[in-house]
Design a protein around this nucleic acid. Sequence first.
DNA 1: CTGATCTACAACCATTTGGTTGTAGATTAT
DNA 2: ATAATCTACAACCAAATGGTTGTAGATCAG
Lengths: 108, 108
Amino acid sequence: MTNEEVDRIFRALADATRRDIVRRTLTSESSVSDLARDYDMSFAAVQKHVATLEAAGLVTKYPRGRERMVRGNPENLRQVQQLLQHFEDLWRSRVSRLDALLAEDPTP
Amino acid sequence: MTNEEVDRIFRALADATRRDIVRRTLTSESSVSDLARDYDMSFAAVQKHVATLEAAGLVTKYPRGRERMVRGNPENLRQVQQLLQHFEDLWRSRVSRLDALLAEDPTP
DNA sequence: CTGATCTACAACCATTTGGTTGTAGATTAT
DNA sequence: ATAATCTACAACCAAATGGTTGTAGATCAG
């Protein structure tokens, strides 16, 4: 994953409406207009949110008749989780180095 | 965590420079000017990035003489990880429901 | 004391973001 | 065939973002 991709994913998740769309479409897929009905904004606004999520690879869309079905895609969520886990690991390694330092024989 | 807090955290992570600052300060703390030296932008720009991270609770700052030391804070990273794990769980529950459906006796 | 360093913060600017309305193309229903 | 529904996309707007420079307050070094 390039920095730009990671940027896009985090930015896409930095909005409560978009996080809710991801949550919903991970559970069960919905059409764009199904989604739009549940938010207090225009259809076009919801459509843009879905497009942002699609560009970030967090949802996929496929046509069913005149509707576009939106389905959550867990793949990039896992990638992000892995990145955060890496951070967590860095922190733990720092802590254990500090622990080692404290455990050293204090009389060299 | 409120939606606004989550927004702030994801938004703070949606920038490669800020992610790098988090990574570095989780490993070993640095002063703001230490950090600023390593990025191709003004001191003030780096200072703003650190402020954004601090507002998101991803780093903490404390004074050491005339310097401000920046230290990565793993707490909110874990919160975000938990949120992503929740998404992952939702997806898995959907998959197992589909599995259950497929496993149903096809002749009722 | 004086000068250098580190930080904070304001003011400014270009770009992006998140919303709107309006128009037009496809598909479905009557 | 006509009307209704769903989507895509453009144009526009206010606010936020990410950068800049400049100024001023603390702290440290000589």
